[in-house]
């Protein structure tokens, strides 16, 4: 590999246009000891990156700690503990809200009345909100599926149903609006909540 070719590669490297293979050529080239002085900064750069790539999480008890955590986490309750994680998040949200409340001048208090009609979003980062939504959906889904899998519980429901078979094909059945509305009318009558 001539210096000319290397210079050319370096140029496209700086433009973010080199492929991974080309970057490997550069890395190999700069790992040599006998480089012209002008390449010193590049050599530093590539060697530095290489050294950083070999950093490892050095903790002999890592796996043990981890499995302990998982156990604790699981024991806490498979589903409800998931809600507890929101402590931290809601704590932050609470502080934010508090800041809003504290820094709104008294004169502008009607503003806060407006705010009382609209409950503040817990998250301001859509990604975070998205992740939490998906998690909530998965929990609901998991419970619903647990329910449909548990025949015992289905029997309870069947009492309120005209046709037990419909419930067994619960997922498909839900698409069917007619069945569902019958189901509903029936339930309202029996509902003693």
């Amino acid at each position: 590999m001539t210096c000319n070719e290397i210079d050319k590669l370096l140029k496209s490297y700086l433009e973010g246009e080199t492929s991974l293979a080309e970057e490997k050529i550069l890395r190999d080239f700069f790992s040599r000891g006998d480089l012209p002085d002008k390449y010193k900064p590049y050599a530093d750069m590539f060697r530095g990156f290489g050294a950083m790539a070999s950093v490892q999480l050095e903790d002999r008890h890592f796996e043990k700690k981890w499995s302990k955590k998982v156990k604790l986490h699981t024991r806490h309750g498979r589903s409800l503990s998931f809600f507890s994680q929101w402590y931290t998040i809601t704590g932050v949200a609470a502080t934010l809200l508090l800041a809003v409340v504290l820094f709104v001048p008294v004169k502008k208090l009607p503003v806060i009345n407006l705010f009382s009609h609209k409950i503040e979003d817990t998250f301001d980062d859509p990604r975070q909100a998205y992740a939490e939504t998906v998690r909530a959906l998965l929990i609901i889904s998991d419970k619903i599926n647990a329910g449909t899998n548990q025949m015992k519980d289905l029997e309870k429901l069947d009492e309120g149903l005209e046709d037990a078979g419909k419930m067994l094909t619960f997922n498909k059945g839900l698409k069917d609006a007619n069945k569902l509305s019958k189901f509903s009318e029936n339930q309202v009558d029996h509902n003693n909540l």
């Binding site: 309750g77 498979r78 589903s79 409800l80 419970k143 619903i144 647990a146 329910g147 449909t148 548990q150 015992k152 519980d153 289905l154 309870k156 429901l157 309120g160 189901f183 509903s184 339930q187 309202v188 509902n191 909540l193």
Partner: peptide
């Protein structure tokens, strides 16, 4: 009374 009970799931003490 406006809601329809869809299902009840009992898992351990939950």
């Amino acid at each position: 009374q406006k809601y329809t009970e869809l299902m009840v799931v009992q898992e351990k003490d939950e």
